[in-house]
Amino acid sequence: DVAEQLTPDGPREESLQLVSELKDPWCSCPVDVGTVWWAAAGHRELRVVTASESAVSLWQPLAPDCWGKVYTWHLTELPVIQIVPLPDTCNLVCVALGELEIGEIRLLLYSETDSFKHSLVKTGNIKAVVGLKDQRLVSSSRTMQEQQVEMVLLSETGGSKDRQTLMPPEETVTAFAEVEGMREALVGTTAGNSVVVWNLKTGQLLRKMHIGYSYPASICHRAYSDSGLLFVVLSHPHAKESESCGSPAFRVVAFNPRSGRSTGVMFSCLPPGRAGRRGDVWDTAGAAVLTSGAVAVWDLLRGHCTAVLPPGPAGHWALARWAAGGAGLLAGHRDGTVHLYRY
C-alpha cells in the first residue's frame, strides 16, 4: 500500500467525479460547507449549506448540475465558525458561532408559520460540539472551575425539548464522535490524549482510555462497536512525520473498553511530501485539505489514499466535507466556489 502511494502516478482524482458546481459571488470568505435534508411539498431532498463569517445560505438543486440559493440567514453579532451536521434531521441547520472559540450554538430553521428564523440553543466557552441521530446535540463547555458536558434534545421547531448532563472527565473534551449502531454510546477525545466513553441515557462516564504519547492532540471522528471492541477513527493534526510511517492523517485504533487497552488497526498517511490536514470522515472514507491546497481522500479500512484533488484554476481548496447519505464530497475554494463530487 505504501509503495502504491509513493509512485509518481499515485492517487489522482479519478475516483472523484465532478457532479456540479455552485458559486456564490457574494461569499468571499467561506468558513464551512455541508448538506442538510430538507422536506418540502411532500418529498425530501438533500440541500447544500454554505457559511461565511456573517451569513449562512441554503442551496436547492434546480437541475442535475445546477443549484440555486433558496435563502440566506444573516448572523451579524458573532462570526460563524462552523456548520454542525445533524444526521437524519430535516429542515434544521445548526451553526457554531464565536470569536476564537465557540461562544454560541444556533439553529437556523424554516417553519410554515414563522418562515425562516434562528434560535439560540447554547452559550458559553464551548470546546466541542457534535450532532447525533434523533435530533440530539452534545457539547462540552468550560468555566474557570469546571467543565460541563450536556446533551440537548432538539425540537422540530428549533427549541430544546430536554437536556441531559453527562459526567465530565477531568480533562477538557476536544471532540465527540457517535458510535455507529449504538444509539446510547458516545465517545470523545480529551486534551490529555485519552478516549472517553459515555452512556447517553444515564449520563455515566464509563471509561477513560489513554491513546499514547506518539500521537498527541488526537481528534476522534467516528467510532464503531464490533466483536466487543470499540474501533475509533482518529486524526492527528499535530503528529510529526516519521521515517517508518510518514505523516499520519487518520488512524483506526481498536480499544477494548473492558481492559482499557488498545492497538492500532489501520494507518492512513498523507501523500509523500505533503503536510497539514483538516479532516472529515463519512462511513469509512476520510478526506482532508492539505496545506498545499490539495484535497486528499482515503479508504480508512484499507489505509489507501484513493484520490487527490490538486489545487485548481480557482486556487487552493479550503474546505472538504462529506455530504450526508453518501451523496459525495463537497470541496470549497476560498472564492466561494463549491464543487460536489461523486465518490
Binding site: M182, L229, R258
Partner: peptide, 23 residues
C-alpha cells in the same frame, strides 16, 4: 489483534460498564 494484546474481551462491555460505573 489478539485477546492477549487487549485483555479479556466482552461483547456486553457497554451494559457491564454501565452497571459498574458510578451513577
Amino acid at each position: 489483534c489478539s485477546e492477549s494484546d487487549l485483555g479479556p474481551i466482552s461483547l456486553n462491555w457497554f451494559e457491564e460498564l454501565s452497571a459498574e460505573a458510578p451513577p
